[in-house]
Design a binder for these strands. Structure first.
Lengths: 185, 185
DNA sequence: ACGGTAAACGCGACGGCTGTGCTTTAAGGT
DNA sequence: ACCTTAAAGCACAGCCGTCGCGTTTACCGT
């Protein structure tokens, strides 16, 4: 599990954590991933490097933490009035976010500094939660809807596989095809 | 693309590369991934650290190189006389290799130190090649067979997604279910 | 076969990151 | 208000990663 969980909820610790996270985000945008170092982040955040080493232990774990935070969806998927439309729109947006250079970097960082797989599991849980929202809404309308696991296997997994292993030639049409294959099959 | 491609094919370069790769494999088994450093690898391989830095640039890229080498299949998938049996057996073996602690580590390393995605693409190509062999054999027998891309989406991608993001509760039954879902759907 | 060319390796040095013991500060409970 | 304890600051030792330069070795044209 990420050390973020053991942090005291309020006060100085929270301020430091937010400052460090913000510093990472800024420096990622300004200097790029490879130029990033712990002392650099610490200086920008107004902390000493040792603080970062103690709380995160490693630059990779810190990046993983920030990445998971960035990958957390900020809003519920939009409601277009029907399962097919909702799921298609969500898949297209998901692919957009993940396939962008920044998105791919975040996904890789999340997987990277993650000894026990907790952060990767969290990413997957975020997607599952969004999917489940869409499916529950459809069932509430009386539409027949597949299970979450089926959507993960047929839509999310292929998208992520392509993003990670075969980034060439990824577009919204592929996402639409996956959704169609699931709902029409 | 990995720098391995620009290496001169024979002579000293090849010897150095093989020595370094062997050193990485040995030290991975002996000391573990986190204890690994470039100077350590260099000493074991009988080269100077600067040589490693020049050719691979980074410990992660070196590990990625070694990982891809290890993930290359060493034999054609076995022939059990029918598409369903062949594909099921291959999927189970694939999952076995990838879901083991060592396998997961190699996959992550391959993805990790891979700026342009060349190594990841090669991993995917290995799997596609194996799948294609199975499918071509089935068509040679007159069996109807899905396309490679369909197998990648329906079987390989879900397996890899689980391996990377949700390693808990992965077993052969899941692989069999994926194959069955594809062939019966 | 032989010499020219350029890539690749070895060597040495240094700047800067990494990580740790010890001290100091501040948050939360009584 | 005081006490406890966790977290941050400070200082420093060690090693990683990089660079310039000289040397070696593989490729290639004649």
């Amino acid at each position: 599990m990420s050390r973020r969980q053991m942090v005291r909820p309020g006060g100085r610790s929270a301020r430091v954590q937010e400052a460090v996270h913000a510093a990472v985000r800024e420096l990622l945008a300004e200097a790029g991933r490879d130029a990033l170092t712990v002392p650099m982040v610490a200086q920008r955040a107004g902390v000493t490097p040792s603080t970062v080493y103690r709380r995160w232990g490693d630059l990779r774990e810190l990046l993983s933490d920030v990445a998971v935070e960035r990958l957390r969806p900020d809003a519920a998927p939009q409601d277009l009035g029907g399962l097919r439309g909702d799921l298609t729109a969500w898949a297209e947006q998901f692919l957009d976010e993940m396939a962008s250079p920044a998105g791919r970097a975040y996904v890789r960082d999340a997987l990277l500094g993650d000894p026990d797989g907790g952060n990767a599991g969290r990413c997957s849980a975020y997607a599952a939660e969004q999917v489940d929202t869409v499916l529950a809404r459809a069932r509430g309308r009386g539409e027949p809807a597949p299970g979450v696991e089926e959507v993960m296997d047929r839509v999310v997994a292929p998208l992520m596989y392509r993003v990670l292993f075969r980034p060439a030639g990824l577009d919204g049409a592929y996402a639409r095809r996956l959704v169609a294959g699931l709902l029409d099959g």
